[in-house]
Amino acid sequence: MVNVQEGIPIARPKIGSSGFTGSWRITKPVIHYDACTKCRLCYFYCVENSIDLQQDLYPKIDYDFCKGCGVCADVCPTKAIEMVREVK
């Protein structure tokens, strides 16, 4: 354990310590698994690390933190990710 002096600005890793950024989203990426080839490009490109790989190596999106930027949909070679508008 690092002995950090009181008053030095550091943070311990904790999920959601800066709030749930998924609430910023206006379009939501939805994976159509029938078209997914498990190429993992979306997983590598996700700027927020909001895409994780499941046991079977299919990607799964964490909607608590996905801001809906659409990079995953853009890089998907089989167009398996659809951006669905969430705001009415």
């Binding site: 690092v2 950090v4 943070a11 311990r12 890793p13 800066s18």
Partner: peptide, 13 residues
């Protein structure tokens, strides 16, 4: 030091 790989922490966030 502040960096210890067995005890990760965030700096500058």
């Amino acid at each position: 030091n502040l960096i210890d790989f067995s005890d990760p922490l965030g700096i500058g966030q």
